[in-house]
Every structure is written in structure tokens, then in C-alpha cells.
Design a protein around this nucleic acid. Structure first.
Lengths: 189, 189
DNA sequence: TGTGAGTAGTCATTTTTATGACTATCATGG
DNA sequence: CCATGATAGTCATAAAAATGACTACTCACA
């Protein structure tokens, strides 16, 4: 039960429809979780049945009606309990790392292509999160916002997301360098 | 099918028993994957049935017999294909981030306790990976090893693991600072 | 003499996560 | 006027990951 809490945490920002939630989770919610729309709708249904979120129907003229959800007091209590419980340590679990682990036995070109692609994606995320951070803190400095802002949770997780992606990009670039240098050394023989 | 390739990649280092493999995956194989022993035994059985790994029985006097597995040519080919296929972008998916996302609504003390704990675990991993890196490169410098070593895959993934955990630790410390400062500001009113 | 820890595994089941295939309506561009 | 893409979802099923409950033997320690 993890997506469950991710949904609750995401809904703390205000009322959202399943569709809007899906948009947020599609980009990874600042890298802290990722899920398909179907998973979110299913989770929202379960959460509502258990009374952790409540939805209200919003009738719309020009587009399909939607249901906006918010976290109930029971839901906040659940998040409290979740926070107090110990978290299992995080790990990366990334296909790309598996590929690099096998670097000595697989095609270098294919691997470099994957790394290049990943570096590009990471950079895009850095940019995205950068603008997101600016939007969150408004015209305040980061220091000021973190001291006095009234909703810093998303900002803090977003900072983690940026750091992760920078590290990701840098490691990809470094790994590409290593692989290319080895290729050249090998070619000379 | 992801654990599958992680197992194949891990077995490239040489013959391992399910039990040894479980030891490696227990610490996270340099943070690139994590799995329970039962999952590994099950995966090894499947892999053997499909001919991607082969095992040989080793009879032992003093302790239970074991089966050592190695990757077959078919297995290497599978890894090749896997490497060529595009990887889905990685994301963190960490309970702790979910908790921090909800920081403004949950108990600060509980959250700080979690962050402190995580920072400690991260530091332990940094140390662990540090010694692992030393062991992998022997008496060579990192540069020299990466240029001329003949098994650099695990070293590269381990570098990623170290960077990840450093980032993890630093972010935890920073977040704790922010939360404590806000608590003090709040207490004064 | 039994208690706990380490080695080496198996079987069954649940929980969680992910995918495929759908239904509607509206707006926009060509 | 038709195709595409956005909005707003549902239902069923597959795949992956995680858990619980076991067996069996050995060794060291108190």
C-alpha cells in the first residue's frame, strides 16, 4: 500500500479530479511516484470506499462531468500513521543500471545510445522541475520560502527530484565517456 | 521481466548459488536492484527452464549441497536484446518522499525521526559501497581501472549507488534543517 | 543440552503494479 | 467534413514483486 499514500499526499494540495491526478503522476510528481491513470482511478475508488478521500461531482457544460476529490480527516490520520511507521530503505531499481552492470558483455553502441537518451531525458526533467520550483516559491528566495512558506512539502520533494536527475545525467555522461575511451583504446589494437 | 535481467547481469560475475545471489541482492547489488531470496530462487528456476542460465550441483560434506548457476550463451543474447530495447525512465518511488510531500500536514517529530534514520542508512551504504569500489579496482586508481580493467560494469553501477546515497543523505540533512528551523520559528509565537 | 545463527533451499499465496481494450463528448486544424 | 487530441473516465486481466510458513543440517557458545 504505497500508491495509496502517494495519492493522499498529492491530494493535500487541493481538490483534484482523477484525470488531473493522472496528469501529475504521469510526469512523476516531482519524481516521487509514477502511475498510470487506470491505477489512479482504481485507487481513488478504493480510497473513497474506505472514507480516506471524498469526492464531489462537478457538472460541466462543455466537457464531461468530473469528480473532484479531497482528503478527509480519516485520510490525514492515515497519512500520520504512515509517516510514523518506518519506511523501507529506498533503492534505485532502474533497467539502465542493469544494462550497465552487464556492460562488459553487451554491445557498447547500444548501451551508449541508451545512456545518451537517458541523459537527455534527465536534462528535460531538471528543466521541468526547475520551473516547477520557481512557480512554487513565487517571488521569494528559496531560503525565505522554506522558512515561511505554508506548503513546503512539494518543494522539498521537488528538490530531491532535481538532485536525482542531475546525478543521473552526470553519471550517464561520465559512463559514456568511459565507454568511448575504452572503445578507442580497444580499436587501436 | 526486470528482476530476470538483474539476475542475469549479476551472474555475469561468475558462478553463484541462489543463496549467494540472495546475499548480493539483499544489500541491493550496489543499489541497482533488491529482492528477497524466494524471488531469486523462483527466478533462477524459470531462467533455467528457459535455458538462460545453467546450474550444476555441488556436493558439500559439511553443509547442504548447493547449485551454482552461470549464464548461458542464450542468456547473454537475452541480455543483449534487453540492452538494445529502450528502458523506461527511472524514478525514485520512495515512501520517505511521500511522507515529506505531506510534511505540512503530519507530525514533524515523526518525520524528522524518519529522515534521521534514513540519513544514517545512507551513510552506511556510502561506506559499504566505498569499500566495495576499493575491492573492485584493487591497487589501481579509478581512472586506470576504468580505462583498462576487464570488468567495469559493477564498478560503474556502484559509482551510481554511491552518488545516489550521498544525494540521499545530503537531502535528508537539509530537510531536517528546514523542518527544525520552522519548528523554532513557530514555537516563538 | 539446547539456543541461536548460518547455509541452502521449497511451496503457496497475496499484494501491488501495469496493461489492454473500451466509451463518450468537445474543440481545433486542415 | 474528417481526423486528431484533450477531457474524463471504466472494466477486466496480466505480470511482477513481496510475504508467510516451511524443511534440514551444522557449528559455536554457554
Amino acid at each position: 500500500m504505497a500508491l495509496r499514500h502517494a495519492v493522499l499526499a498529492a491530494l493535500l494540495d487541493g481538490e483534484l479530479s482523477g484525470y488531473q491526478l493522472a496528469k501529475a503522476f504521469d510526469v512523476g510528481v516531482a519524481n516521487f511516484w509514477y502511475a498510470q491513470p487506470q491505477q489512479l482511478y482504481a485507487e481513488l475508488t478504493r480510497l473513497e470506499k474506505e472514507g480516506l478521500v471524498a469526492g464531489r461531482e462537478v457538472v460541466q457544460e462543455t466537457r464531461p462531468n468530473k469528480r473532484l476529490f479531497h482528503v478527509t480527516d480519516t485520510g490525514v490520520a492515515e497519512l500520520e500513521a504512515f509517516t510514523a511507521a518506518s519506511a523501507k530503505p529506498a533503492f534505485i531499481r532502474d533497467d539502465l543500471l542493469v544494462k550497465v552492470q552487464a556492460a562488459d558483455r553487451v554491445d557498447t553502441d547500444a548501451l551508449i545510445a541508451q545512456l545518451t537518451d537517458r541523459a537527455r531525458i534527465a536534462q528535460a526533467k531538471i528543466d521541468l522541475f526547475g520551473t516547477l520550483l520557481c512557480r512554487l516559491r513565487g517571488d521569494r528566495t528559496e531560503e525565505d520560502f522554506l522558512r515561511h512558506g505554508d506548503r513546503i512539502g512539494p518543494y522539498l520533494t521537488c528538490l530531491r527530484g532535481v538532485a536525482f536527475e542531475q546525478e543521473n545525467r552526470d553519471w550517464c555522461v561520465r559512463t559514456i565517456d568511459v565507454l568511448e575511451e575504452r572503445r578507442q583504446l580497444h580499436a587501436r589494437h
